Lab assay of single mutants.
Amino acid sequence: NKFNKELGWATWEIFNLPNLNGVQVKAFIDSLRDDPSQSANLLAEAKKLNDAQA
């Protein structure tokens, strides 16, 4: 379904953000699993944090 596809894509993108540490990645992935409907918002937050830590 739509959420599974978005969840998978967001998970892959978060895993590939180079400036996040393992704890941050795990926290974002756990949040995605808790509420897949928020995948776009969580991915945006992860990208912002990644950019801030560059």
Rank of each mutant, 00 (worst) to 15 (best):
N4C: 10
D30P: 00
K26T: 10
P18E: 09
L43N: 02
A54L: 07
L17V: 00
A46T: 01
V23G: 12
A52D: 08
L20D: 00
A40I: 11
N41T: 13
S39Y: 15
F28D: 00
Q38F: 09
F3C: 08
I29E: 02
L32P: 00
D34V: 11
G22C: 10
L32C: 04
L43Y: 07
P18Q: 06
V25G: 00
D35T: 05
A46I: 03
N19G: 04
S31F: 08
L17C: 03
F15H: 09
D30H: 08
F3H: 12
S37T: 07
N16H: 12
F3S: 06
S39E: 07
V23H: 13
P18K: 09
N16M: 11
A44T: 08
K48V: 11
S31A: 14
F28G: 00
L17R: 00
N1I: 07
R33A: 08
K48T: 06
K47V: 06
E6L: 14
K48Q: 10
L32Y: 02
N1S: 05
L42D: 00
E45K: 08
P18A: 06
S31T: 05
E45R: 06
A46E: 00
K47W: 05
K26N: 08
S39I: 15
L43M: 05
K48D: 06
K26D: 06
F3W: 12
S31Y: 08
E6H: 07
V23L: 12
L49C: 05
N1E: 12
A27F: 15
W9V: 09
F28K: 00
L20K: 00
F3Q: 09
R33Y: 14
D51V: 09
L49K: 03
E6R: 04
A27H: 15
P36M: 05
W12Q: 14
A46W: 02
G22W: 14
P36F: 07
D51N: 08
N50A: 03
E13P: 03
A52H: 08
K2Y: 12
L7V: 05
Q53G: 04
N19Y: 15
N50K: 01
L7H: 07
K47R: 14
N1A: 04
K2Q: 14
R33G: 04
F15P: 02
L43V: 15
F28S: 00
L7K: 03
N1W: 02
D30A: 12
F3M: 05
F15M: 15
F28V: 01
S37I: 04
L32E: 00
T11G: 08
T11W: 13
N16A: 08
G8A: 15
L49W: 04
Q38N: 13
N16K: 11
T11L: 15
A46R: 00
I14R: 01
S39A: 12
N16E: 03
D30L: 08
W12I: 10
A10Y: 14
S39M: 15
D51E: 13
D51Q: 08
V25C: 03
A54Y: 08
G22E: 14
K2S: 12
K2R: 11
F3P: 12
K26P: 01
P36V: 04
S31I: 10
D51Y: 08
K5A: 14
K48H: 08
D51P: 00
A52V: 10
I29P: 00
V23F: 14
D51L: 09
K47I: 11
L7T: 09
D51G: 07
A44I: 08
K5L: 12
W12F: 12
R33N: 13
D30Q: 14
E45D: 13
K5C: 13
A10K: 04
F15L: 07
D34F: 11
N50R: 00
E13Y: 15
L49F: 02
Q24A: 02
V23S: 14
A40Q: 11
A40W: 10
N16W: 05
I14T: 02
V25Q: 08
E13F: 14
K2V: 13
N21V: 04
A40T: 09
E45L: 06
A46L: 03
T11N: 08
W9K: 10
L32R: 00
F28R: 00
S39P: 02
E45M: 12
K47E: 03
W12L: 09
S39G: 03
K5I: 10
L32I: 12
F15K: 11
N16Q: 12
L7I: 15
K5T: 15
N19L: 03
L42V: 14
K47T: 04
F15W: 10
F28Y: 07
L20V: 01
I14M: 06
V23W: 14
L49S: 01
N19R: 01
L49Y: 03
D34R: 15
L49H: 02
P18S: 08
N4L: 11
L42S: 02
V25L: 10
L42Q: 02
K2G: 14
L17N: 01
N4R: 05
N41I: 09
D34I: 13
D35W: 05
P36R: 03
N16Y: 07
R33P: 00
K5V: 10
A27W: 15
V23D: 15
T11S: 10
N4E: 14
W9M: 11
I29C: 03
N1M: 06
Q38M: 08
I14S: 02
D30G: 06
A44P: 01
E45C: 07
L20W: 01
D34E: 14
L42C: 06
N4M: 09
I14Y: 03
W12K: 12
L20R: 00
E45G: 01
S31K: 15
K5Y: 13
F28E: 01
P36L: 04
A40Y: 12
D35Y: 10
F3D: 08
P36K: 02
Q53W: 03
D51I: 09
S39L: 11
N19K: 01
N16T: 09
A10F: 15
N16F: 05
N4H: 13
V25M: 05
L42R: 04
